[in-house]
Amino acid sequence: MEYILKEPERQISTKIIKIWRTTNTIGHGSFLLGFGALLAASQFWEWYNWFNITLYILIGITVLSAIFSIWIEPVFIQRTWRYEVDEKFIQLKHGRWNVEHKIIPMAKIEYVTTDQGPFLRKAGLYSLNIGTTASSHKIPAIPEEEALKLRSLIASYANVKEDDSFE
């Protein structure tokens, strides 16, 4: 019997854009603060000049990266994220410039968990973690009800006996 793979269609919540913007702002902000502090210390105690140059370069890179990952990236990630779960496979597909499409057999799945940080909780979202012996994968930002349903669905699908034999 031929199995036809369905192109993944399910999307993640749009609320995640705002959350990513917030968390990325915090992350980049703390890096900038750290570099700033080092720069101030360097000026105060007159450390080596190359140290200052390195710091300026790092700050420049951080600012550029911040612009990208706060204003541009979250929208694209959310827009391009697709997943699909059926009784045989989990599919994860995301990325705009760099499209990645992962296919994980249900039979290889060892655990499935739901996570919720403070930002996700405020938005009523969960992220779903799927683990195999080889790796772990994350579907970010699924509405609460859907996430819990998905978790028990995967758990029941994954409880299949694997036929590893060669014919």
Binding site: N98, I104, S135, D163, D164
Partner: peptide
């Protein structure tokens, strides 16, 4: 390797 021995696959494409 053989299909049964593969844990998961990934197909990707850059711009």
């Amino acid at each position: 390797t053989r299909r049964e021995r593969i844990q998961e696959i990934e197909v990707s494409q850059s711009k």
